[in-house]
């Protein structure tokens, strides 16, 4: 049986851009994530340092990692959508 995609759509000329951009953002996030793990392993006491408003580094970094994923996702989607509109002249209807 066929292994093609579940639904068909027009040619996407922005694939190369999206793949490259996605990879860059991924690497940035990985570095921040590695930083979090490294502090915990190498200097766990640093995590107890109060950073602001009575919150320690563990809380600020942890919340920061969650917020960063959201912010990077929004930027990625915005720029990818722009590039898709720019490169793909006839955009199909979006579900």
């Amino acid at each position: 049986m066929s292994h093609g995609p579940a639904t068909q759509w027009g040619e996407d000329k922005a694939i190369a851009y999206k793949t490259k951009f996605g990879l860059y953002l991924f690497i940035i996030y990985v570095l921040v994530y590695i930083g979090f793990i490294a502090i915990n392993v190498v200097s766990p006491k640093t995590m107890a340092t109060i950073v602001f408003a009575g919150q320690n580094l563990a809380v600020v970094y942890g919340f920061g990692l969650i917020a960063l994923a959201f912010v990077m996702g929004i930027i990625y989607d915005y720029l990818c959508s722009q590039k898709e509109d720019e490169l793909n002249e006839t955009e199909g209807s979006e579900k």
């Binding site: 292994h3 995609p5 996605g22 990879l23 990625y76």
Partner: peptide, 17 residues
């Protein structure tokens, strides 16, 4: 989910059924 968004989501959709 960062891995899912930046690396996996679109290609997987593009190639799979």
């Amino acid at each position: 989910w960062v891995v899912a968004l930046f690396i996996v989501a679109e290609p997987l959709k593009r190639y799979g059924k």
